[in-house]
């Protein structure tokens, strides 16, 4: 860990302004991912801006029937919220499928969206990684990539976004509310929030420098059966090999987003007009680029989706 300076922000706008005022700044909330990365010098911020005391820890109803989830709401609290459990069950289930109880107590909503890949080459500073050190290459391509991406990859990076929560938010069409350093605000649709790696896998979201997440909004409830099926190598505390977030309506139509496939939660709306796991998975996975180690994800998506559809039918 490199030496860093530290200050507390007084308001969301203040946080954003401070972040551009001091070069090399990073926000710190729960720190469950950032501190590990700092110890390994994968992240080397020179300045930390503590955003924990900005009062962004509430879950509120909004006009028109949705909810606004403060950026600092802890994962545990979000998963346990009565309204979330009732109207957005897929989100609650996704949260509880992730990490451990201790981590969920500390991890925040915004921090979860911003957590970084678990690619083992990203984590070993002796190895080439375009995400960690742009231009150094990608050791994962041709290396151990069993749990890396098959969709939307590039020559530069095959990392996945590891968040379970984000997959559920994607299926719920969440919005990410932010404030920019100039004080203006905007809402970024979750679909446009994370980026594919392209030539710049080091840039993972469409946030501009200093832009600060204040909340995540969920549109009004859409009913249906909410399922989050996470497939993993052990029963708990493992990142998804693949996951399926589903909201299925009584007529069998549904929305499906997938984790463990790409650099962002993977959803292909066009596939949702189809019926049957085979057809839907075929469209969702069109253009999949697999390696011998991760090719199993293709049949696994179809099989898991089939089980999800069967479960929704009851």
């Amino acid at each position: 860990m490199k030496a860093f300076t530290f200050e507390r922000a007084h308001s969301p706008a203040d946080a954003a302004a401070k972040a551009v005022a001091t070069p090399g700044s990073t926000f710190i909330a729960g720190g469950t991912n950032l501190l590990d990365l700092m110890k390994l010098q994968i992240e080397t911020p020179r300045h930390l801006i503590d955003v924990n005391r900005l009062g962004l820890d509430k879950i509120e109803g909004v006009d028109g029937g949705g909810v606004r989830i403060g950026a600092l709401v802890r994962n545990t609290d979000l998963a346990a919220d009565a309204r979330v459990r009732k109207d957005y069950g897929v989100l609650s289930r996704a949260l509880l499928a992730g990490a451990s109880g201790q981590l969920r107590n500390k991890a925040t909503t915004a921090g979860n969206l911003l957590q970084r890949t678990r690619c083992p080459y990203f984590y070993d500073t002796n190895q080439a990684c375009n995400k960690r050190k742009p231009g150094s290459g990608c050791a994962a391509i041709g290396g151990f990539n069993r749990n890396l991406a098959i969709m939307g990859t590039s020559e530069a990076c095959i990392a996945t976004q590891p968040s379970d929560m984000a997959v559920a938010m994607r299926v719920l069409d969440a919005g990410v509310e932010t404030v920019k350093p100039d004080g203006t605000t905007r809402t970024i649709p979750i679909a446009d929030f994370h980026r594919l790696p392209g030539d710049t896998p080091n840039i993972e979201t469409n946030l501009i420098p200093g832009e600060f997440i204040t909340a995540v909004t969920l549109p009004k409830p859409i009913g249906g059966t909410h399922i989050y099926q996470k497939v993993r190598d052990r029963a708990s505390y493992a990142f998804a090999l693949i996951s399926v977030a589903a909201v299925v309506q009584p007529d069998g139509r549904g929305r499906f987003a997938f984790g463990g496939l790409a650099h962002k939660p993977w959803r292909v709306e066009a596939a949702e007009r189809l019926s049957g796991a085979k057809e839907i998975a075929g469209t969702v996975l069109a253009g999949a680029k697999t390696t011998p180690q991760n090719a199993f994800k293709v049949p696994l998506v179809e099989r898991t989706l089939g089980a999800v559809l069967a479960e929704a039918k009851g």
Binding site: P120, Y121, Q127, G143, R234, A235, S236, F239
Partner: peptide, 18 residues
């Protein structure tokens, strides 16, 4: 490169309580 890649407890899995 001749090394164990999954060199932490997040990636080298041992059973958890569940």
């Amino acid at each position: 490169f001749g090394y164990f890649v999954n060199h932490d407890l997040a990636e080298y899995h041992v059973p958890v309580h569940a």
